[in-house]
Simulated assay, not measured.
Amino acid sequence: MSDRQKGLIQAVDKSFPSAEHRFCVRHIEDNLRSLFKGKLLRDALWKLARCTSPTQYEREMNNLKNLNKRCHLWVSKIPPETWSRSHFSGRAMSDVLTNNMCECFNSKLVDGRDKPIITLLEYIREYVMRKIVTVLKVIDRSSGLLTPYATQIMESVKKEASRYSVHWNGEDHYQVTGPYGDQCVVNMSTSTCACRRWEITGIPCRHVVACIWVKGAQDRSVGRPETFVKPIYTMDRWKAVYSYKVYPINGMSMWPTSQVPIQITAPKLKKQTGRPKKSRKKSAVEREDGGSRKKSKVDAKGKGKAVEGEGQKVKAVRKTKPKGSNTCGTCGQKGHNKRSCMKNFAD
């Protein structure tokens, strides 16, 4: 998952030619905002990203074309297999659309970014060591076949599956019908559903869970719906991932002296003007979302009211004391202050 930088695209294609390279939809939205204005186009972009079937993707693309032909042409140039769930393969078993996982990791390294390289590496090593211990504590408190997150997803899927009816054709195909005209075909022999959610994420969708219940009523050896989840979501796999540890090391004063004759000197540093910035640069989406928050109304009896609106600037009203309300600290009288009190000049 990357932000569509040309250098990253070439590097991934060269270093990992068989990897599935996806683009962050949030960064695609940033690029779209710089060319096309309007919330309708941004919402249409996210609808395209959340589509799970090619038919649904084509329908949303036609809707975008009716809204703006130039925007439709710009979006169509981005390969859909890199940013839309409708064209994702089942290799990764993940339907994430943004690189928030990388952003979360980067946010934990803010305090160590301006440190020297060895200090920065030590900061990362200590953070990863603490993170593994934190996850191991969660694993000890967890129980069941699936991880807590997968269990939460399955519970919500079961609630949705209770509203669906299933028609069996006598083999491995099932027709599942639900509310709002939702009707899909499930093939239990190939572990596929027409909505492609099971294929993309590895977790049975509401159509598949309804089929499992009907099939389980006929054959009790089918098992629970949780047994149809891919092994990557099981507790055993979670424990195996965090079975590797990051070990502590001694301080720099106890490190052995390097026997390499070459000594790498620090590069010449040219100090830039101004204070170094530690906070990251916000994207256009974050800047616009921060400026479009509704301003609170100022209720001060004619002092003025803030105007509510998206992106509107509101002039702040400064509250001042009424004229002649100052109290002198020397004589205690009102109308002047201690500096201009006449008692100071009485002598």
Rank of each mutant, 00 (worst) to 15 (best):
E171K: 10
R59H: 13
E160T: 13
A19E: 01
A92I: 07
A19L: 10
R280P: 02
R141A: 12
I117K: 04
K77Y: 01
G309S: 05
C341T: 03
R141T: 13
T257C: 05
S325K: 06
A49L: 09
M235W: 11
A300G: 10
K158I: 15
C205E: 00
P231G: 08
V135C: 05
C341H: 04
D182K: 14
E29I: 00
H72E: 01
Q312W: 07
R91D: 05
E81P: 00
V75T: 08
T201W: 01
R196H: 14
A306K: 12
K268D: 08
N100E: 05
W168Q: 02
T82N: 15
I264Y: 06
E199G: 03
V209P: 00
L45N: 00
P261N: 04
V133F: 14
M129A: 13
S15G: 06
Q175K: 08
V229Y: 04
Q333Y: 03
H207R: 12
F345G: 00
K69G: 02
E20W: 03
G290T: 05
V135N: 13
P116L: 04
Y244K: 13
Y242H: 15
S53I: 09
L40K: 15
L41D: 00
Y242Q: 02
M61W: 02
T119Y: 08
M101D: 02
C328V: 11
I264D: 02
P116D: 15
K268Y: 05
I117G: 00
V307Q: 11
K215R: 14
N169T: 13
M129L: 11
W168N: 05
A316Y: 09
P261K: 12
L40I: 13
G291R: 14
P261M: 04
G304A: 06
L73H: 08
